[in-house]
Simulated assay, not measured.
Amino acid sequence: MRDRDTNLTRRRLLAGLVAVPAAPLVFMPAMASERLSEDDPQARALNYRHDASAVEHPDYREGQTCANCQLYTDADAAEWGPCAAFPGRLVAAGGWCSAWVPRA
């Protein structure tokens, strides 16, 4: 019985050691603080623009903005908010990129 308790304790310790380094990945959207530049390589790859009305992309449809995208992780953010497509960065609520997904 004692070996079983030792194994459970060891497993919990190892699980905790694995979880600690992964914590920033889970909370990254909440820690976003730097505004995304349109010149950022990832932004360019996804055709990101701060102003959706200026987008000229075949996938863009009028009315699509970051604020009504499912990847915009803080629907209450008025002007700039975190986006799952650009971890650690803020995107313009009125912006758009080709990763746009309708909010469910």
Rank of each mutant, 00 (worst) to 15 (best):
R11F: 10
V26H: 12
P24V: 06
H57A: 10
D76Y: 06
A43L: 02
A104T: 08
G63S: 02
A92Y: 06
R2V: 06
R12D: 11
N68W: 04
A52Y: 03
T9E: 13
R44M: 14
C83H: 00
C69Y: 01
D76F: 12
S37R: 08
R2K: 12
P82T: 03
E79R: 06
N47Q: 09
V101M: 15
D59G: 05
Q70P: 01
P41C: 10
N7M: 13
A93P: 01
L25D: 07
D51E: 12
E38I: 05
D59R: 14
T73D: 09
Q64M: 14
E62W: 09
G94C: 02
A75S: 14
V18W: 11
E38P: 00
A92E: 06
V20T: 14
L13K: 12
N7D: 13
A15N: 07
Q70L: 13
S37W: 02
G63L: 07
A99R: 14
A52M: 09
G63K: 09
P102M: 05
L46W: 09
G95S: 04
A30G: 09
G63R: 06
P24G: 09
T73E: 12
C69Q: 02
Q64F: 01
F27H: 10
N7G: 09
V101K: 14
V101S: 14
R49D: 01
N68F: 06
A22S: 15
S37P: 02
E38G: 12
E56Y: 02
R12E: 02
